[in-house]
Computed example of a mutant assay.
Amino acid sequence: MTSSLVLTGAGGFLGWHVRVLARSLGMPEPILIDRTVLSQPETLASALNGADRVVHIAGINRGNPEEVATGNIELSRQLCAGLKACSTPPKTVVFANSIQANNGTPYGDGKAAAAVLLSETTRWLGSDFVDVLLPNLFGEHGRPHYNSVVATFCRVLADGGKPQVNGDRELDLMHATDAASILLGTVSDSPAVRRTVRDLADQLTYFASTYRTAEIPELADRFDVRLFNTYRSHLAPAPFGLTRHADARGSLVETVKVHGGGGQTFCSSTIPGVTRGQHFHLAKVERFVVVRGEAEICLRRVLHDDILRFRVAGDEPAVVDMPTMWAHSITNTGTGDLTTLFWSNDLFNPTHPDTFPEPVQ
């Protein structure tokens, strides 16, 4: 046993958010349990033995009714078999359940039955059991037509389309990082936000039309910021060229135009060969604009390997916005000083900087 945290379903949408949050909190690298290990009680028991916390996320959300109903029960049954085979049962087992549990649908009834199995097994073993009833989740890198209507609308807008609302209704929504905080035990609860499907379509359409011009839409509260970052995650990161206005006096470039807010702007100078950054943010919206010199901006999604590289220069101003949960850096590749303008939607708070060290490469 090399880790106090064990995750099932770590390769999915919520699992990725749990791993990113755990990384930002400096937790030990978790043990990841895939479907193959789940089906092997002795191998599973070895991974679970003595763990501080087991977070069971693995589940089936889509498929024919029988597959959805029985699949979630079977996954919990497999986990219970591994738990019973442990010589030292885990201290706490957490189940990523749903507010749809016991709602009469195959999915809801399957999740409810899975919770009963885990509750009975952990009580018999003497482990604590935490049954987390999660609402509709949204967040960066959700799968369209699978994880949520938010992901679907974001993908449609990113592709230049228009979201279609077929039957408006209210949804209780929670960002996946907030759900991850509950599953990891860093908070006991996090309030959901209620929006109609039409509200989501209209707000995301506004975000898309405003951001298409490199302007920042109005972000009135925490939910708006998280929803905007979710939309941005469906756009391929890339420089956005700016228009230079010149006359006899010189030139002017509009670098940041924010609707309904301000944020914080600062400027830095960097000597040749030096790299800044090497970190990621969970929620902060951040923009880089090189105004003098030459630089390479590198981006890498946390827990992924592929690196994006962009060459930028003050002679041809362009904005590069940092996606949330992507490590990023900027390196002076020129022969003189590099001058870079930075903007973020939040004022810097040294006690809660939302900045977590992570080398890009």
Rank of each mutant, 00 (worst) to 15 (best):
S181M: 10
N61W: 10
A236N: 07
V68N: 00
A69H: 15
L83V: 13
K91D: 15
L338G: 06
M325G: 00
R212F: 07
V320W: 15
I307G: 03
G71S: 09
P191V: 00
R226K: 11
G11D: 11
D159A: 14
A112V: 06
R198Q: 15
S46T: 02
S46D: 07
R311P: 01
H328Y: 08
C267H: 11
R23N: 11
L117G: 02
F223M: 11
L173I: 12
I271E: 04
P191F: 05
P135C: 07
H328V: 01
V93Y: 13
Q264R: 03
H145T: 04
V55A: 00
V225G: 01
D202M: 10
R276L: 14
R35E: 06
R62T: 13
G262S: 09
L118A: 09
D224W: 09
L7E: 01
R123W: 02
A81Q: 14
V68Y: 00
K162Y: 11
I31F: 03
N64K: 12
G110W: 02
V256W: 03
F223A: 09
V319S: 15
L38N: 02
Q40F: 00
F129D: 12
V130Y: 09
P65R: 07
S87A: 14
F266I: 02
R301N: 07
T355D: 08
Y146E: 03
D131P: 08
F348C: 05
L235K: 00
G160V: 12
F129Y: 15
S181H: 03
I99V: 15
K111N: 04
G9V: 10
A318S: 15
S24G: 05
S190L: 01
E74D: 01
Y206C: 03
L341M: 14
V130E: 13
R226V: 06
R212N: 13
V274T: 13
F288R: 06
E294N: 12
A248T: 05
C86R: 07
L79C: 08
L32P: 01
M27Q: 13
E254L: 05
S46P: 00
P89D: 09
F310C: 12
S268Y: 01
D247V: 11
W16F: 12
A327Q: 05
D52E: 15
A85P: 06
S3F: 00
H352T: 10
I182A: 00
G11R: 12
G261V: 04
T92W: 13
G50T: 07
G167L: 14
W124M: 15
R212G: 14
W343T: 10
L219Q: 08
L299E: 10
D159I: 05
R287E: 04
G9D: 09
V302L: 13
V312N: 03
A248L: 05
P106R: 08
A179T: 00
R155T: 09
G110P: 04
R77P: 04
A192H: 11
P144R: 04
N147A: 06
G277P: 06
E74I: 01
A295T: 10
T324N: 02
A208Y: 03
V37N: 02
D34A: 09
R232M: 11
